[in-house]
Design a protein around this nucleic acid. Sequence first.
RNA 1: GCGAGCGUAGCCAAGUGGUUAAGGCAGUGGAUUGUGGUUCCACCAUCGGGGGUUCGAUUCCCCUCGUUCGCC
Length: 375
Amino acid sequence: MGDVLSDRFRFECHKHCSATQARVGTFYTPHGPVETPRFMPVGTLANVKTLTPDQLQATGAQMVLANTYHLHLQPGEDIVARAGGLHRFMQWPGPILTDSGGFQVFSLSEIRSIEESGVSFRSPRDGQIIHLSPEIAIRIQNALGADVIMAFDECPPYPATREAVALATDRTHRWLERCIQAHQRSDQALFGIVQGGTYLDLRQAAARLLVDFDLPGYAIGGVSVGEPPALIEEIVRATTPLLPQDKPRYLMGVGTYREMVQAIAAGIDLFDCVIPTRLARHGNALVQGQRWNLKNNRFREDFTPLDPSCPCYTCRHFTRAYVSHLLRSRELLAYTLLSIHNVTELVRFTQRIRTAILQDCFVSEFEQWLLPNNA
RNA sequence: GCGAGCGUAGCCAAGUGGUUAAGGCAGUGGAUUGUGGUUCCACCAUCGGGGGUUCGAUUCCCCUCGUUCGCC
């Protein structure tokens, strides 16, 4: 299976940045290539919410992230499987990645018990008890049928003691073995996840250990859980170089302009983040490295596009004043237009980085984001 | 013209003779990182006007203005 797998999920590195660890590559999946570095919008079906596949495709998005936990609750993986799998059900022709649900246990359950066998918690939706374990998470993801599936991990909160993080990290490794055992589809790549909280030596030990599993890709998880942004960069810089050169590296849950640039400089290829769509639903636009609250008074009579230099549908057709009006009157179209723009913006941002690396001007062009702190 | 009622923020609307006058909507800012889905947080009034009573009135009394209902 190893050869078939490595063939189906080949990662080619085309160029390395001369001054940083940044690189340009292509990650091949059964549903098409992903040109890296690349931002992946979250998610689809239960989650992108306001974009059609056509609209999503027009943003330049290649791979999208869907959510195991939400799809398990509704409509249930059996229905997705009977519908012909996730790609067909949601009509997304490109690559899809599913998250394992490990993060959701951390982020949105109140009552939970985490044991060696797995996790149980009360669904915030309807109160029913949900069980997740490595085997269940993989079984669900096998049924959903995404191109890339994620190991079921334990994501410790921040802050957490070194002892607690070490326990969670060790458990994540034991769970990874069970995930690999449970995984049954050779047309799906299982990625491992590096945990270790903010303890760099735990991170590095975890990375070294994971490499031995020879997985088709690796992710850094457990960041952007409330820690100071500077710590994310530290973690990424300490961990990424230990992951294999010839495999895609994915930083989960990130992020912002700065975090992405710094992570790419450390050798990261893929990102996912709810920021563009969540901000859209809250009335914010990402424009030229800034966040704007389109509901602010100053946009009321601003008859220019969100970003005159942006090629997206929203910017080609509508004014800031119009979007501001849609938001004030709570028209659903506001969320669609802002989502189109925001996703386009972050995808384009990673595309521009890709181009800059290819032209060997990454450091000079993205200097403002590489320097320590500022807006 | 007579009788009764009501005037608290842009709107709706509690409330009390005593240091900081509920709440909602709207408004103004802010937040948001492997998606709990029109979210969360903060700010935003001296009580129609004038005069009395009182140590003290948004609250009680008088006048006035506005408004609503009924009668003529």
